[in-house]
Amino acid sequence: MENEILKIEHIKKSFGDNIILDDLSLSVYQGEVIVIVGPSGCGKSTLLRCINALEGIQEGHIYLEGEEIKKDSKNLPKLREKIGMVFQSYDLFPHLSVMDNILLAPLKVQKRNKSEVIAEARALLERIGLADKENSYPRELSGGQKQRIAIVRALCMHPEILLFDEVTAALDPEMVREVLDVMLSLAKQGRTMLIVTHEMQFAKAVADRVIFLDGGHIIEEAKPCEFFENPKTERAKQFLNMFEFDAVKDSSK
């Protein structure tokens, strides 16, 4: 069996009476790209937030390389170093330049050598085509540029797994592509990734496995071609139909 990086066992998460995740289990293996889709409010973002303990869980366990992740445990920052997360928007630190955004955690948390991290950051910025932006501030960048830099910032921590929480949802359409391209190249390099997205074409291209979440349960789990071409459950069919439009005007005339 491949190397299991993340193991989620029977977790339950609720806000008051409102159950968000119910008895959910999932394993993620090294180098795997999993895309999580589902209607809004199905718990997909909450699932990612539980994985690095931004939200606590009521029942069940989450393990990263065999170590349990708990909201109040002492070594939580240590575990979070190994989990890179990129959010929907506004997560760059506005008072720091691009370079300082990237350097903050490697220097202050991992205490790494500064020139070494700078060299690494420059190489990564080069690769995403933003080498000239290292002294810019977040307010001077477009939404797409900010998201790409947020990805670089996460990568510089050398995480074992990357979590993407609807990273293109707040972007203008023409900027979505540049961010997705970065994620595609990461997938090609064999990074382990968990992606929540509404971009179905992208999901089809990038995923090893697609997970369809609804009402806090995993309803369907399949290879992308199977899931998108031939969903087994009625709910998944309904969901995928939302992305299709039937012509209302007769175009043959």
């Binding site: 937030r49 690095n52 931004l54 920052p77 240590k78 979070r80 170093e81 989990i83 890179g84 997360m85 959010f87 928007s89 506004y90 997560d91 760059l92 630190f93 506005p94 008072h95 903050l104 955690a105 202050k108 948390v109 991992q110 947020a150 910032r153 996460a154 921590m157 979590l163």
Partner: peptide
């Protein structure tokens, strides 16, 4: 200061004190 600032600092592995010092307080 937006809550997501705290969260992204936490997810970079910053402790509570470091998040306060380097991310929240300056803003």
């Amino acid at each position: 200061v937006d809550k997501i600032q705290t969260e992204s600092a936490y997810s970079l592995g910053l402790s509570r004190a470091k998040t306060m010092r380097y991310v929240i307080l300056p803003q």
